[in-house]
Structure formats: C-alpha cells, structure tokens
Computed example of a mutant assay.
Amino acid sequence: MIPYGRQDISQADIDAVLDVLKSDFLTQGPQVPRFEQNVALHVGASHALAVNSATSALHIACLALGLGPGDVLWTTPITFVASANCALYCGAGVDFVDIDPRTYNLCPKALADKLEQAERDGKLPKVLVAVHLSGQPCDMQAIGALAQRYGFKIIEDASHAIGGKYRGEFIGSCRYSDITVFSFHPVKIITTAEGGMALTNDAELASKMALLRSHGITRDANQMTHEADGPWYYQQIDLGFNYRMTELQAALGNSQMERLDQFVARRHQLASRYDTLLAELPVTTPWQHPDSYSGLHLYVIRLQLDKIGKTHRQVFEALREQGVGVNLHYIPVHTQPYYQRMGFRQGDFPEAERYYAEAISLPMFQALREHEQGQVVKVLRRALGIHGG
C-alpha cells in the first residue's frame, strides 16, 4: 500500500533521539528550547512554545487570547475538528465561514459578508482560526484587514504549512496574526512523532501560553504573589495543563528542521509532476495562489463527476483496493453529529459540501518515489474508467 503520507526518518534523526536517551534529561532539558529557537528563527517569529500536539497549541492559544464563555470563534468547515473544538474547550461557541472554491481555504469575501451581518446583529467573533489547508496559506492580508476593522484576534492554524510562504515571508512570522500553530504529527512535513508549537510576536501572549502548558505553575519570582519560601518553591498562579513536549520529541524535531526546506522543495517537485500526469484526466488539480508558496502537506484532487460516470465512493474504494492509500481531508465539521446537535445543518456551507463530495487526497510525502507516483496515476486512471495511456 502506498500511503497518503509518511514520515521521513534518517540515521541522523535516530542518532539525535539516541543521544537524548543516553543523556541526563528525557524531559525539560535543553532540546525543547533549542527546538523552539530553531523554528522561531527559521520563520521569523519572536517567541515559540513547543507542546505535545497542535490541538494543545490551539487550546492554549485560545485561552491566552481570552476566549471564554459568551465568546464565539469562527473557522472553516474544511479542517480537522481540532480547529473548532479548541473553542469548546474554553466554553466558547463556534461558527463557520464557507470556503473559497479555488483554494479551499476560508473565503475572505464570505468572511467580510458574514462580519457585516454579525456587526449588525451584535454577534462578532472574538477569534478567527484561519486554516492553511494542504499547506497553502489563506489570504492573510485580507483577513488581517478585516480583523483590524472588526476587532477580532487571529490564530493561523498552519498545521499543514511549516516551510511554506505567504507574500515571500515564511508562514509562522505572525505578520497578520496574533498566534500561529504548527503540527509535527508523523504525516506532516516534519515530525516529532507527536507534537505542536505556538508562535507569536507578543511577549505577553508567549508568557501566558508558557504558563498554561505546564499546569499554570511558575518558578519566576516576578510572577509570584509573595517572596519564595526557599529554592524549592513554585506557585500555581493559573489553571494550566500538562501539554509539555519531551526532549526525545524535540531532538527529533531539531534534526528534522535541518531538512525542512529540502522536504518542501521535494513536495513541490512531486506536485508539479502530478500536475503534468493528471492534466488530461477528468479531475481538478490544486490551484496555487500566486502570493503563496505552499508547504504542500497534501495534494488534493477534485473529481469531475459529471465526466466520469462513477461515484466519488467508487473511485475512492477502487484506489484503495489497488494499493493506493488515498484519504479525504476533510469531512465538513458542521456535518459531524456533535456539531449537528448544536444546530448546524447540511446545506449551511455549500462550497464546503461540494468540495467534500469531490475531494480525494493522493499520496504526497517527500520519500514518494517517481515509480510509485506513476503507479498512483495508473491506478487512478483505471478507477476513473480510463484505459490506455
């Protein structure tokens, strides 16, 4: 089976983890701050906080921005559920903005229209989570301008996008956002096995997130309510969580960072080759906005079902049956039973639902070999009912 995604682990990665296993620290040692510094320097952010998952990063980002009961977070329906669930963890509400039919990201025009109505209704969001689907950045300049006008905060969910760029700057610089979140899950561009990171240029937000990731506990005398009882002393000054990243994970991340640009460049080679190989098939290949340089975590095609004579499910199942481990990113969040119990309904976000009815994620990872890619396309042709070629 050719998977849709796979980690790329080198001997250097293995050696880095083994070195930590032989060291004095398995957690809370030097590797985590080094990893934070490496990522922050690479993308051009002032502060970076490594955590045990991107979901944890989203959670503490929302809390640091003051999201809570009575507030609402908006995001896209085409994302993993964590992009919306993070609001519910804080006791806030959730709403969605439909997608752009070309980028599949949150649509700035739909956002502007919804904000105009929300202002009239007195129901503006406190936070917007802009998800860079597949690694292609949202139109952050337009979204940032709307945030200035309507007064909401922005989290970039860049779980798919480390190594990508927007308007010539690395995603994660937070030029148009308050906080950016990365994921280091094994199928992502670089991995720490499990792990995530929150980046910001705001020292106060960074301090708040650092506190929240470790039980709300501080050893900083400047944050304490009174003088320390002794050198052992700490205080819990907030309700936090155990969201820390281990030294083993950070060591793997530090090693992987050395190949980040190489990984993304290889993904672009593969995407370009897919574009050529699929050009005459009844599928829509990913469109890239000229302002963006995608991290290319995913390569999503859309089936032109009116030209195929087969259903979406039939094509998907035929691919898997022939050893191509395709996937679908994502089922619209508003159609999930949990969210439907909140009142969301089929038909609420039609562009997202049209996307879901046609989308298939083809294998995309830096170690994908050209003959494997050729096999993917060959099987896809058969699944579409096209013979020869």
Rank of each mutant, 00 (worst) to 15 (best):
C174E: 12
H297Q: 08
A250E: 02
H132M: 05
Q288P: 02
H185S: 06
E169D: 07
E358Y: 03
D113W: 01
Q148K: 13
L277K: 08
C138R: 04
R266W: 12
I237L: 00
E317V: 00
Y274N: 08
A158L: 10
A84D: 04
I143V: 15
N105P: 07
D220W: 14
Q223N: 10
Y166C: 01
F365V: 09
D348N: 15
M364L: 15
M257P: 03
D348R: 13
A251V: 07
D178S: 14
H226Q: 10
A251N: 01
L18K: 14
L21G: 03
W287V: 08
A221Y: 15
D19L: 09
S56N: 07
A161Y: 11
D229A: 13
I14A: 08
T103S: 14
P363L: 10
Q336Y: 13
M257Y: 09
A352Y: 05
V43T: 08
P231V: 15
I60T: 06
Y104C: 10
D8A: 07
N38L: 12
L277M: 11
K126F: 10
Q235D: 01
D15E: 12
F96G: 09
Q117E: 09
V17D: 01
L380E: 01
A147L: 02
I386D: 00
W232S: 02
L73F: 01
P69M: 03
C90Q: 09
Q236A: 06
E258M: 12
N327E: 03
L305Q: 00
Y293I: 08
E119S: 13
D229Y: 15
W287C: 05
T225E: 02
V81T: 05
T225R: 12
A367S: 15
F263H: 15
G135Q: 11
G135F: 15
R219I: 09
Y176G: 09
Y356D: 07
S10K: 14
P186F: 02
K114F: 05
D157W: 06
M224Q: 08
G385Y: 02
A221N: 11
I78Q: 08
M257G: 08
L21Y: 13
Q28R: 15
E116V: 11
S214T: 13
E169S: 12
R266A: 10
H312L: 03
A203F: 09
D178P: 09
R267Y: 08
V129C: 07
A161M: 08
G343F: 01
R369W: 09
W287M: 11
L106N: 02
P125F: 07
G93V: 08
R149E: 11
A193M: 14
G122Y: 12
F263Q: 14
H329G: 07
R6P: 06
A203G: 05
A45N: 02
C107R: 04
Q336W: 13
E119R: 11
A198E: 08
Y233G: 02
G91Q: 06
Q346Y: 11
T191D: 02
D13K: 05
F184Y: 10
N52H: 10
Y339Q: 02
D229L: 13
A145S: 09
V94W: 01
E36S: 06
A228W: 06
A367G: 04
Y339E: 00
V264K: 03
I386Q: 01
Q262R: 14
R149S: 02
P231E: 09
P286C: 07
N52L: 12
I386W: 04
D157H: 11
R259D: 04
G374I: 00
L18N: 14
T200H: 11
